[in-house]
Amino acid sequence: MRNLSKLTFQFLMPAAMILAVAGEAGAQDDMTARIALGDIASVETLNLLIALEHAKERGVDIELTAFKSEDIANQAVVNGQADIGVGVPYPVIQKVDAPIRMFYRLSELRFFPVVDKKYESWEDLDGEEIAVHSRGSGTEAAANIMADKHGITYKNISYVPGSEVRALALLNDSVDATFLDIANTDFVMAKAPGEFHLLPMGDLEGTDEALFARTDWLDENQETVQILIEELLKVTRAINEDPGYVAAERERLGLLADLPEDLAAEIQPYFEQAVEAQLFPQNGGSAEGVKADFDFYTAAGQLEGSPEELKVEDFWYLEPLEKAQAAVGG
């Protein structure tokens, strides 16, 4: 008996104390945010990095972890090893009812259909092959949406994951039509001037990347979330005002200090093009924007059911964003 009570004291007491402390920490905003990136931080994440740095200056403790892939980063958030993820986790929320919500639209869906000059319009792609990222990806959805819109059928949709891989495939002629991201579109255009051009996409709206977190974390860390969104809005607006802001802020804050010269030189042109393409939404998202997502991601096969019946609040938590928009103004 005595042994047992001693044992209880030795093991259960500390355990209970730890639980108590953990519970307490979980119950109130501790001004920390563990952020899971799906890729290593690079030029393209500088806007986010700058906003995070500003949030730090306002007292938020930021912990940044880069994961191998977006899927793994998202799982880390779902399972509680990280607080904030970057991506569009519509399927995880819908299919397994993961307790997470998106709260900030980081970037807009922008597709760059780079094709051989022999195809002058979408109609010319009728009966031709097109390469997209993967089955169920945004690029596939974009390809299908454009096919519907122009009344064409592809001979075949091939899956080639990785924008840089598809860029190389374009250059060595194994692919004649595909979707690339901004950086790789530039790369291809510079490598083979006059060989390829972009087809018009029309107005396709949707979220390319959003910030998301677990609902309980969003509830318990309202102040942190508020600061983060405010800083993101401010940085986005500063960039949209002047794309040169990124390079200057990077310099000032000493971000990505070990970035090689040639990559650092790409910062300016990248953000100039991004702003020109209206990649960064001025207001960080809206209920209407989410509705547009429902249309696009249903077409992509990521969401099931009819887009009209999907509810914004099942996927997004817009309250802090609206508050931040009011606070920042404009």
Partner: peptide, 15 residues
Amino acid sequence: PTGVGDLITYYRSVA
């Protein structure tokens, strides 16, 4: 992604 590799990738991407 082809064959089973595609199945895994696809089903993961749509959860």
